[in-house]
Design a protein around this nucleic acid. Structure first.
Lengths: 384, 384
DNA sequence: GCAATTACTTCTGCTCTAGAACTAATGCGA
DNA sequence: TCGCATTAGTTCTAGAGCAGAAGTAATTGC
């Protein structure tokens, strides 16, 4: 299979056109010109070069029924490049192969035999080899994990893995021979939503993820909000319920103690007198079990308050909910609305809230997007 | 006095150089080139044009002691243009005359005879005439008020004035003949900090103002965070103390009921059995009065929690505290730190918190900056 | 079948750029 | 005291990239 050339050495105007097509394509030349504030003439010149070099192609025509000559939309060839995206937890490693638009072509997972960095590198490398077999070649590997990551390479801290200052990116590049980028899992997921998910085309949006922990990410003015604290899980301690349960750090009713999936399951299990998991908790609540409903509604109200807090402080055009525990939002929909109403002025614009599937694969797609960004953007720029 | 020409028709490269000098000047050509990623040659050409047209001037030399030819810093002539900045409350109108860098040259105030828009326009116009006498000419007028403002002109809602949908900007332009811009007071103050205050040169910072109400503003990725909800005072209802006093809307321990200067004064006054104002409350607390100390410390803790919330969700490089009630931060410094510690992970980077003077004039400087921005920026661009 | 409309191309001239080669003004060490 | 390194700024040139004009292409609607 013929592979398109790297985008990095492209001149800035060409690259911004290619990026526009990658994120918003298939799209006609005139639409791109309008979006980028360029003349039709400039777009003709720029797209000719990109078609020549194989970065873009013309797709089948699209008349759209309105008057005038039909446009001839441009598109990238999603299958021209492949990327690996992996999500690393303290117990297992999930991985996917994606195309240039982070569409999943294949996926696999493996239990971590050890948390030792050397061992994890080996596990990642083996999964990478297995996943690589389904495609001709891999352009880059992205890994997401819960923790703080510096310059998309060095893991500063990762509590679930018990790591501090691990040069994980370099270790992986040496072992696999692949260009490798590492990023905090929530930031990676946020970039996925930014480029290919529900945040596409929005100037400002926020992400909240529910699961074992509570994650927060945001894109503000078209740029990921991130610093060295990203990955600490700063909203995990967010106070939501002054009468709520205690968390291990001694916070009463913090986001983690109220919203985390294990906390919800445990609260219901304790009341029922038998241990249950989050899946069963959801089933019980949906079946109308009064204890499960009560706990879910309390959690939903807490989620609503957290949503209101994010809405009030970052003024997002949309809030995207993700993570394995996202079912809470649909099960306790009314309670979430109630929670929002508590902390949000009724005169404020209604918050646009969108829930993703909550699939574990989404974390991997996020990691793949980080690898895709590394491929298409000038690494020195670091923007967008 | 000779006035420099408007900046708006300047070509984009010239204008960005002029803007760099306005905000960071006096500054040498080579420093500007480094900041804007331009070559020394380009800067020579651009600055020659700006010097020719009188927008910039060369200041006295500045050798700085290090080797090499000393630089010849460029600067704007602050006194070449003058602006009016006014702050409108429900009771009075405060106004200042400033130069191009929002330095205050003269100030004045007047009690509002009525809240009727026509009457307020008249009051503004008269104060404008009075303030104008001290300078040769006024380039633009900026007005800040507590409320929602659309496109820096139309007041959508202003509770203190009991206004809805008042075309205030147009009315003022007609009456005064001056180019006039209107903005929410907190957003205006935030822009002041952004261009000429403690937020200068920072990519991300947040502002909290304390006074009759609680205000929040932020600059994220070098752009003001603002939408149609700005001006509703969304953080006013922020829950800070589950055992705190009730606010008129029935929120227990919300930011307004805990932090607002009148609320603090009232809490102390009630306990003392005699009405006091915020000033006396501060004096009592500083003198060690146990009741005043207790109330101030509770408020300080609440402020700390609000600061932590902002720090956790917007990841600012700095948080600027302003408003007439800012003395709370110094009086209850320890309690503020305590409050931050409650809601912020100790592993997170320490928040850089800066307090302004709390002078009422600061609101006017904010309004003046909005007028200055209108003058130097292309109004169609709307950016930065 | 003709006009209106929208999409795209080609060409021209202009603006802005980097980079090289240059001058200018300083500190510092031999 | 005299280079010499260093930093600041200027001038010139070639080229990149742009808008806008003029022209072509392909459709709808009347």
């Amino acid at each position: 299979m013929q592979t398109a050339p790297r985008w990095s050495p492209l001149p800035a105007p060409e690259r911004s056109v290619a990026l526009e097509v990658l994120i918003h394509g298939p799209i006609s030349r005139s639409d791109i010109a309008r979006r980028l504030n360029l003349s039709a003439g400039s777009l003709s010149r720029l797209s000719a070069g990109l078609l020549q070099s194989g970065v873009l192609v013309e797709t089948g025509e699209l008349s759209e029924g309105r008057a005038g000559r039909p446009s001839r939309p441009l598109d990238v060839v999603p299958g021209s490049r492949h990327f690996l995206g992996m999500k690393l937890t303290g117990e297992e490693l999930l991985g996917v192969v994606t195309d240039l638009r982070a569409n999943v072509l294949d996926s696999s997972s493996v239990v971590l035999p050890s948390r030792d960095p050397e061992s994890v590198v080996e596990t990642v490398a083996r999964l990478a080899e297995r996943l690589s077999r389904s495609v001709a070649s891999i352009t880059a590997l992205g890994v997401g994990l819960g923790g703080r990551v510096d310059r998309r390479s060095v893991v500063l801290s990762a509590p679930f893995l018990e790591w501090t200052d691990v040069r994980f990116g370099e270790m992986l590049e040496r072992r696999t021979g692949l260009r490798t980028v590492v990023e905090n899992d929530v930031d990676a997921f946020t970039e996925y939503e930014h480029w290919f998910g529900s945040g596409r085309g929005l100037d400002r949006f926020a992400v909240l993820t529910l699961g074992v922990g509570i994650g927060y990410g945001a894109v503000l003015h078209d740029r990921l909000l991130s610093n060295r604290d990203s990955g600490l899980g700063l909203v995990g301690h967010w106070p939501l319920d002054p009468y709520g349960p205690l968390c291990p750090q001694g916070h009463r009713g913090c986001a983690r103690s109220v919203l985390a999936s294990p906390a919800i399951a445990q609260a219901i299990g304790t009341a029922l007198g038998r241990p249950i998991d989050f899946d069963e908790a959801c089933r019980l609540a949906e079946a109308g079990d009064p204890i499960a409903r009560r706990v879910m509604d309390d959690a939903g109200r807490g989620l609503g308050r957290l949503i209101a807090a994010v809405g009030n402080l970052t003024l997002p055009d949309r809030i995207v909910l993700g993570g394995e525990g996202v079912r809470l939002a649909s099960i306790a929909r009314a309670a979430v609305e109630e929670g929002i109403a508590i902390d949000r002025d009724p005169r404020a614009t209604r918050l646009d809230i969108v829930a993703t599937s909550g699939d574990n694969i989404e974390w991997c797609r996020g990691a793949a997007v980080i690898a895709i960004q590394d491929f298409v953007l000038d690494s020195t720029a670091g923007r967008l």
